[in-house]
Write a protein that binds this DNA or RNA. Structure first.
Lengths: 199, 199, 199, 199
DNA sequence: TATGAATGAGCTTTCATTCAT
DNA sequence: GATGAATGAAAGCTCATTCAT
């Protein structure tokens, strides 16, 4: 619905990658801690309290919740994105690279309580977050996917956006349900993806 | 001078409205409509308004939200459950039966906005709902799965509970994102499931 | 199409009201006024309205109703507590001191509509209030009582807690029943207390 | 405020003393049971459920809550009233009679959870109840009081209405506070009452 | 006459967001 | 810039009371 490119620019402009203010870092640490405990939907107050600042400060630096979430996980998302090409170069096969990357992504999503649901576009005011995630990781996933599919000589049954969002969804609730094994499900999805002639 | 309590009573005694007798079906229809529009977490007030009844009426019939959701979707869940054995009997192969059933399930989940997330155990007060879904559909899914796996001579890489919840998760947000194709993802997951030797 | 949650946010964002900074004293004055009118069980809304603030403000400063009641009457309770030793020193006899103090206490309870019932432990959420009252005033009452009893050479037939709570109870409803004379009843109770050899 | 005599007549007319309908008795038994458990302010629904009837039936027979309470305790109140003259005749001294009667009354009030507060005029819609209690028991108390005061040659420091209401108040909350000894307090009040020259 | 479904006012509580200091 | 008090919309839930059946 929103233009992915311009959305991303806006976000990037707001954040100024690579130059986190000294005090901003404290906010991010606190937010990260709270997100793990209470999920990304945690009350702003809780985060402010943890950081030892007023809520106004949070709003000043991160006007919307997604802005904050993006900032908190920027490093990890970045690491995830950068792992793509590297894994492709290092792995024995493209499929192995894809599987390894996907496992990395799953670990990230599952570890961060409630983050997974952010891949959905309609969670509470998640515009910027969704945009950032999609904009940064879809291309990475796409190239891994393409390589893996080429190696098994199969046409892509679905695009990288769907794969990413599907994985995101599969990871929802994984942290709080011990019977639920998101990791295996995701690998099974990849298996299905690489199987020739899926209906 | 007058006591607050008695004041209230007096005021309450003023109310003089007609109360058209309504059956439970009207409530369910209204709730179903609202669920499609606003999801299963829609405010009780909104449902009551749509049904043209007071909130008390909703609470009388369905003390908890899951009670209402279960009632609303009971027929469809039942239909889904009953379709399992029938498809197994009618389909050319067990795999075809599984795929057909899964498609049915997906259609159900995707159509009903927000219902999918009910497969998670930790949504707001979803005990009864979760229990009902899992209790009714896991066995159905299990038998279909077993049959399909036998036909491809593969050990089950994951149990029916995980499959069901995985599918449920894959369907989250499908209704509001036209780029997202839950149906295909689910079929790919099934493909992965039936592929021998998945890591 | 739009999600309920984000709809709400948008609406909330519309509010554009001025927020005059108010001190806690204004709240207390308003609460005191409402308490006199409607008793200590008055709806929070009523108090907020009287104070010209939002309900949230009340809850911020006084999370529970007793917190508020305690704050409102703290000065007077304190005054009552401090009057004990002073009266003992100034009065002609310990009995006179006890009677004077008790009269003071009665006046306080009777004046504040509904406050008396707070001496009971089981009124709606009155933990803090009850604890405060009992903790602050029982010792004061106890020393007055002891002195008075000593002067008439009688063993205490009942402890200060019972005396205090009994007085509190005697004052219930005194403000709204002109035929009911709590003051005299309390003095009669004191007389009985100081009478030797009560069965 | 209301005319005691006519009020009483109205109540008596509603009840038709001595001719409890067969089914009405079931209601009274149920209400009595609920009152003991949850107090006289128990939800109407609870009483109806216990009686196995609809709430409408309760309202038909007893339009207001006090009507019901009066009916429930009519026998006991009657017994209490009748005990007055008898005790006066049987006891060694008028004071003994007064103390015995008061003890009876206290036992009645304390046993019935929450009933005591009904002696206040302003509890939730307790008009009829208050009127009945006062109208029936004040005269009884008055004669006992007069006799006892005559025997000690003292003028009445306070009237029977105040004594009754004072006792009622002293009994509030007695059931739920083991430290609180209403019985002793009431006897102390009587002692004070019979002490010559109370200020 | 009995029933109990329906009503809806009203209460408490939470929390995103604003803005005076 | 930072703060956090203030705001008030919302939502869940309870229960006295009415009245169609």
């Amino acid at each position: 619905m929103a233009d992915t490119q311009s959305e991303q620019s806006r976000v990037a402009g707001t954040q100024q990658v690579g130059r986190p203010r000294r005090d901003q870092q404290g906010l991010l640490d606190a937010a990260a801690a709270v997100f793990v405990t209470s999920g990304v939907e945690a009350p702003v107050r809780e985060i402010a309290a943890k950081a030892g600042v007023g809520v106004g400060t949070i709003y000043r630096h991160f006007p919307t919740r997604p802005d904050l979430v993006v900032a908190v996980y920027r490093h990890q998302v970045e690491a995830c994105a950068e792992a793509g090409p590297r894994l492709l170069a290092e792995s024995a096969t493209p499929e192995a690279a894809l599987r390894a990357w996907v496992a990395l992504f799953v670990e990230f999503l599952v570890t961060k309580h409630g983050l997974a649901s952010a891949l959905q576009g309609d969670s509470a005011g998640s515009d910027a977050l969704h945009t950032y995630f999609v904009g940064r990781l879809v291309p990475v996933c796409d190239s891994l996917l393409e390589a893996a599919l080429q190696s098994v000589d199969t046409a892509p049954p679905i695009d990288a956006y769907n794969v990413l969002k599907g994985i995101g969804n599969l990871c929802i609730g994984a942290a709080s349900d011990t019977r639920y094994d998101a990791t295996t499900l995701v690998q099974l999805l990849i298996s299905g993806l690489l199987t020739r002639g899926t209906p």
